[in-house]
Simulated assay, not measured.
Amino acid sequence: MDKKLGFIGCGNMGAAMVGGIINSGIVSKENIIASTKTKSSSEALESKFGIRTTIDNKKVAEEADVIFLAVKPFMYEAVIEEIRDLIKKEAIIVTIAAGIEIDKVKAWFNRDIKLIKTMPNTPALVGEGMSAICPSDNVPEEELEYIISIFNSFGKTEILGENDFHGFIALCGSSPAYVFMFIEAMGDAAVKMGIPRKKAYRLAAQAVLGSAKMVLETEKHPGELKDMVCSPRGTTIEAVIELEKSGMRSSIIKAMEKCEEKSKNM
């Protein structure tokens, strides 16, 4: 499927997507155009990726078959008003703003559009993103699969109902922050035990990465994998019991509930 991709806004997340797309070979760099606020940003993108750039959103709207709206959520209405009369009749609009509903975006366009709501998380920057995808009813299966393949180029994807996006934000959108805090705490403990800080963070991060990979690749229940590490009268079970005393699980659940609640009320 030879389509031209357009990015309106191309900050860290947009750049991560562009890098993944180019590296995967799904779309050639010649068929990607991105608009940014400043000429310096455009020049930096063009230099890094070899894509075409502009500071004119309208140019992207006129050329692209798939338009990624990668601007801040508060900018959506104004950007859509600027481009809605210029997009191609069969263009696919991809939003990257979990808090903005499909119906609201359609109302802003004030015309029949093919719309796919998405939410990647920041590990997309290193090719390990987790993205939620929700298509509107009029998106053909072939075109949905094409968009999924684009998001798979910088991580993994899951199709979710729009009502589940608030939970997704708590589970994947915000969870990198929880994991970074966990790694930082592990690093602090290791420093207390005498391990140099830089090594401590590297060791902790690799331990977390390896553990996550075990869950994905073995498809075993996390509790079963935990039990495999906990030998009778061993060191690990002592640590696990202490974590249970401190309410580790309940703290995570409560934090995610707060995150979901905030997302719903934004």
Rank of each mutant, 00 (worst) to 15 (best):
T235Q: 12
L209W: 03
A205N: 00
G167E: 10
I237T: 13
G167W: 08
G247C: 02
Y178L: 09
V191S: 03
F180H: 05
T236R: 10
E219R: 10
T157F: 10
G210N: 13
Y146N: 06
K254A: 06
S149P: 08
E238R: 05
I241Y: 07
M186L: 15
S250I: 00
T235V: 15
L243F: 12
T236D: 10
E244I: 03
G210I: 08
I253H: 06
I150C: 09
S246V: 08
K254V: 04
G247A: 02
Y146F: 09
V215G: 01
T236L: 11
E184I: 06
K192W: 15
P222Y: 02
F168Y: 09
A207E: 07
G234Q: 10
H166D: 13
L243W: 15
N152Y: 03
A170T: 01
P232L: 09
S211A: 11
R202A: 15
G187S: 14
C172A: 02
G155I: 03
E145R: 15
I147A: 11
D164C: 04
E224M: 11
S246M: 11
R249L: 13
S211D: 03
A200V: 00
E162Y: 04
L160S: 09
A189K: 05
I169Y: 08
V240A: 06
S174G: 00
F182I: 08
E162R: 00
D188I: 14
E219P: 08
A207D: 03
V179I: 12
M256T: 03
A239T: 02
K254P: 03
L243D: 12
S246P: 08
G187D: 13
G167A: 15
I252P: 11
L209N: 03
H221V: 05
I159G: 14
L225M: 13
E158C: 14
T157K: 12
V191L: 02
K258H: 12
L209K: 09
F151Y: 11
A177D: 02
F151I: 01
R202V: 13
H166W: 14
E184L: 09
R197K: 05
E257D: 13
I147L: 12
L209S: 06
E257L: 14
S246D: 14
A212N: 04
G210D: 15
F168V: 06
E224K: 10
F168P: 04
N152F: 02
A255G: 06
E238S: 05
F165T: 02
I150F: 07
E145G: 10
E244C: 06
I150A: 07
G194I: 07
G210T: 12
E145V: 11
S246W: 12
F165P: 00
V191P: 00
K226D: 01
A204T: 05
K258C: 12
F180N: 06
S250G: 00
G187Q: 14
R233N: 13
L160N: 09
A189M: 05
G161F: 10
Y146V: 01
A177P: 00
V215K: 01
E158Q: 11
S231I: 06
L203G: 00
S251K: 02
I148V: 14
I159T: 15
N163D: 08
P232I: 08
K226L: 05
M248C: 09
P232A: 08
G247M: 02
